[in-house]
Amino acid sequence: MPSDTKARIQAVARELFVEQGVQNTSLRQISERLGITKPALYYHFASRDDLVRSIVQPMVEDIERFVGDRGPGDPRALLDDYFELIWRHRDVLVMMIRELSTMSYLDLGTRMFDWRRQLIAMLLGPELTQEQHIRATVALGGMSDCAVEYAHLPLEVVKPTAVEAAAVVLGV
Rank of each mutant, 00 (worst) to 15 (best):
V67I: 15
V67W: 06
D69G: 13
D69F: 02
R70Q: 12
G71S: 12
P72F: 04
G73F: 03
G73S: 09
D74I: 01
R76F: 07
A77D: 10
L78Y: 04
D80P: 02
D80C: 01
D80G: 00
Y82L: 13
Y82E: 02
Y82A: 05
Y82H: 12
L85G: 05
L85K: 07
I86G: 00
W87Q: 09
R88D: 13
R88Y: 03
R90F: 05
D91K: 12
M95K: 09
M96T: 00
E99R: 10
E99L: 09
S101I: 11
M103L: 15
L106E: 11
L108R: 03
M112P: 01
F113E: 13
F113S: 11
W115H: 12
R116E: 13
R116Y: 03
Q118I: 06
Q118V: 06
A121E: 13
A121H: 07
L124R: 15
G125P: 05
G125A: 07
L128V: 11
L128G: 00
L128T: 15
E131Q: 11
H133A: 12
H133S: 11
I134Y: 01
I134F: 09
I134M: 11
I134H: 07
A136F: 07
T137R: 11
T137F: 05
T137C: 03
V138S: 03
V138T: 08
A139F: 10
L140P: 08
G141R: 08
M143C: 07
S144K: 10
S144W: 01
S144C: 11
D145K: 04
C146T: 05
V148M: 12
V148A: 12
E149I: 14
E149H: 09
Y150A: 04
H152K: 11
T161V: 14
A162E: 02
A162F: 02
